[in-house]
């Protein structure tokens, strides 16, 4: 995995694991690889992996079972919550950047609708090509 050196690595590891969960590569109840294996797979420090997993355990996304390892929570509600949180974080970024361009809320909504419509057409074209 390629990391952005400007962003704390533990934060990027968390985001990587969140995405694995959102795409279904990691399902509720799945066991995570051992800490050192994760560190080797991602080419990062063992301590950094431990910090990322520790925070995810505190957040209730992962469950640590003594002597067995770390598991994705079976709490579907918590996963839905996480998905909402990730979506909100992305929207917040887009919203703030568009606001910084002096767009009103109405203009932001209109622009987004226009973008999605255009994007849909473009993707359809690509499929028919």
């Amino acid at each position: 995995m390629k990391f952005d050196d400007k962003v704390p690595i533990y934060y990027q590891i968390k985001n990587y694991l969140y995405h694995e969960m959102m795409t279904g590569a990691l399902k509720p109840g799945d066991k995570l690889p051992a800490v050192r294996q994760l560190a080797v797979d991602l080419t990062v420090n063992v301590n950094t992996v431990q910090r990322a997993l520790g925070e995810m355990i505190t957040e209730g996304i992962l469950e640590s079972q003594r002597g067995k390892g770390n598991f994705v929570t079976m709490d579907e509600q918590r996963i839905t919550q996480l998905k909402e949180q990730l979506v909100m974080e992305q929207l917040e970024r887009v919203y703030e950047q568009l606001h910084a361009l002096n767009l009103t809320d109405e203009q932001i909504i209109a622009s987004l609708k226009q973008y999605i419509a255009q994007r849909g057409q473009r993707d359809d074209q690509r499929v028919s090509d």
Binding site: D5, I9, R36, V44, N45, V46, N47, T48
Partner: peptide
């Protein structure tokens, strides 16, 4: 780099000197 992650004993400390840092940056505490 992979062998460092794999084989460094958990309690041991490792000092890596370099004047070119970008490649090892993700593994440094």
């Amino acid at each position: 780099i992979s062998s460092i992650i794999k084989w460094k004993p958990e309690d041991a400390t490792m000092v890596i000197s370099d004047h070119y840092v970008s490649e090892i940056a993700p593994i440094l505490d």
